[in-house]
């Protein structure tokens, strides 16, 4: 029984982390409808920046957040201007292949710059855990989970209340219609990219004490993010949150009951089944299965 409780606790915490991880992807998918395969590498790069910050300054990696956010603003805009602006107009095939190529290049670049070694940080919080009656909660996981939920809530508020957010939602629902009422698509897309990159920076900061970083870690992240986003319904933040917890639970429980070798396979299976039978995801986001048509 203790095991199960611990499992649930772990799953919930991990779910929060997954939610945090997939916010940026969900935003990009929802608003720009671009299929990007390079998302994982973005997370990876920010994690490396955070790692280097910690390694060279000795300051706790959480304090790298302002730096990463700053980098995110600049790089998000740059990423849009140099690449994503073109991808919006190109077909899905081009988007997939171009971002795949970029992701491959970035993986190798990271390996070149920082070697293939698996690196991890040691935050002051790593040693802490909270002991409950029935389980343990590691501090970094808890922090990440809480940050994830706060970020998701914050994002939802932003999307509902602010001008930028409303414009984004308009574009997400009906690109042509939004254009017709005078919403400047280009600016909104850039804003989306910047915001998404900031979310990536946020997740990287809080995931760093939890996950080791190595050049190909992006692949693991993008797979999870994809599954969460698709299961939740592309562009649905709330759906994504729910999906994140579901995936985490499925992953952990199948690992426990079937053995760890099946843990990933099971959630891949969920992914495939979702695409086959309910591509609109939990939130039933209509139209996304056409992805921009």
């Amino acid at each position: 029984m203790r095991d199960i409780v611990q499992l649930v606790v772990q799953s919930v915490l991990l779910g929060g982390v997954y939610a945090l991880l997939s916010l940026g992807l969900n935003l990009i998918f929802g608003v720009t409808r671009i299929v990007i395969f390079v998302y994982g590498e973005l997370v990876m790069l920010f994690m490396y920046v955070g790692f280097l910050f910690w390694k060279h300054s000795g300051i706790d990696p959480y304090y790298a957040l302002p730096l990463l956010l700053l980098v995110a603003v600049g790089s998000g805009a740059l990423l849009y201007d140099l690449l994503f602006r073109r991808l919006v107009r190109a077909g899905h095939l081009a988007q997939i292949l171009a971002t795949l190529g970029l992701s491959y290049a970035l993986q190798n670049l990271a390996q070149l710059a920082w070697t293939a070694d698996v690196q991890s940080v040691r935050s002051a919080w790593n040693g802490y855990s909270i002991h409950l009656a029935r389980g343990n909660i590691s501090a970094p996981s808890l922090i990440a989970c809480v940050v994830g939920l706060l970020a998701a809530t914050g994002l939802l508020q932003y999307l509902r209340r602010s001008n930028g957010g409303l414009a984004m939602r308009a574009v997400a629902q009906d690109r042509t219609g939004a254009e017709l009422v005078g919403i400047p698509l280009d600016r909104i897309y850039r804003l989306t990219l910047v915001l998404a990159t900031m979310l990536v920076a946020l997740s990287a900061t809080f995931m760093l004490p939890l996950f080791s970083v190595y050049p190909t870690v992006g692949l693991d992240f993008v797979l999870i993010a994809f599954v969460v986003v698709v299961l939740g319904g592309m562009g649905s933040i709330a759906g994504g949150i729910a999906a994140a917890f579901i995936i985490s639970l499925i992953q952990n429980f199948s690992g426990y009951f079937f053995g760890i070798e099946w843990q990933d396979v099971v959630y891949f299976a969920v992914f495939v089944l979702t695409l086959l039978f309910r591509p609109a995801g939990l939130a039933g986001v209509r139209g996304t299965e056409q992805l921009g048509e």
């Binding site: 073109r86 081009a94 171009a98 971002t99 795949l100 190529g101 491959y104 290049a105 070149l112």
Partner: peptide, 17 residues
Amino acid sequence: PGLSGIIFGLLLMFVVL
């Protein structure tokens, strides 16, 4: 190491676009 990966990845992106 990985130079060819960088070049090919970028080349793929370039060709596609």
